[in-house]
Design a protein around this nucleic acid. Structure first.
Lengths: 139, 139
DNA sequence: ATGATAATGAAATACATTTTCAATAAGGAA
DNA sequence: TTCCTTATTGAAAATGTATTTCATTATCAT
């Protein structure tokens, strides 16, 4: 089953109606190699669905984020872009030159987290790691 | 030498004038255990320097950020707060209950980064790790 | 096919940040 | 010290980003 369909099924399970705007945004997010801002999505979406409203982009991103399907990308310049979420122990890598995102399925950070827990007394509940560099093409 | 003085010297070396607003903000950032937003800083600063302008807070944070003395903190709710920057291989931990920040000096990411470089072809230039959990007091 | 209501888009609003600019103050030169 | 240059400042305006409101539309269970 195409990934877009899986996302739409999750939306349906959550009790959401499947609409044209949502289909459009899901499709764009599933297939994008680059992080996209709400405005990026708005512009791209209107190519195939001219009536798309910017508010709907925000609302749909919020739902997809709640479902863990997309996540906000954090960059020096700002934190306004979204990307397909990393699954399990994947980590996101962003190319600083072309913007392409890649997912690396590396070790989990369990050992480090555990060490921090025991040495610092801090009880870590959540962590995120983001990597910035040059992709193969841009080196 | 107090850390505030060190920061001010770095500002001077950069060619900046040492002003009352800058002293005030530096002092607040050096001594804060919690991440602070521009508005937080604005409010706190006016306690000792009532004429402080919000724009100056933004401008000073930008300079301190360029000098690597403060860094933006990334949280689910948004990325509008700043903290003394982590040095070397320190990583920032934030308490999700009281907001207190702690710095943990544990590397171990070198191996992971190296592995990613060789396996993915991606050349990692920078990495950010941020940890969220409960500090000793809040557990 | 119908109807209840979730979802939508546009406008208004709220919030965050940056730009502009005249007045002020820092700090080197006299 | 006093003067002068100019970086810095604060206020207002402008820009950019995100959310709320609300009447209209479209989904989907019946």
């Amino acid at each position: 089953m195409p990934e877009s369909e899986q996302w739409l099924e999750l939306l349906e399970e959550k009790g959401c109606r499947i609409t044209e705007p949502r289909r459009t945004i899901v499709d764009l997010m599933v297939h994008s190699d680059n992080a996209l801002s709400p405005i990026d999505l708005f512009d791209k979406a209107r190519a195939s669905f001219p009536k798309m409203g910017l508010v709907t982009v925000y609302r749909t991103l919020e739902i997809l984020n709640q479902l863990g399907l997309v996540e906000r990308v954090h960059q020096k310049g700002g934190c306004h872009m979204y990307l397909r979420a990393a699954n399990g122990h994947e980590h996101i890598m962003l190319c600083t030159r072309c913007g392409q995102a890649a997912y690396f399925h590396g070790d989990d950070l369990g050992a480090l987290i555990h060490k921090i827990n025991s040495e610092s007394g801090f009880l870590i509940q959540e962590h995120w790691l983001q990597l910035h560099g040059l992709c193969k093409n841009c080196q």
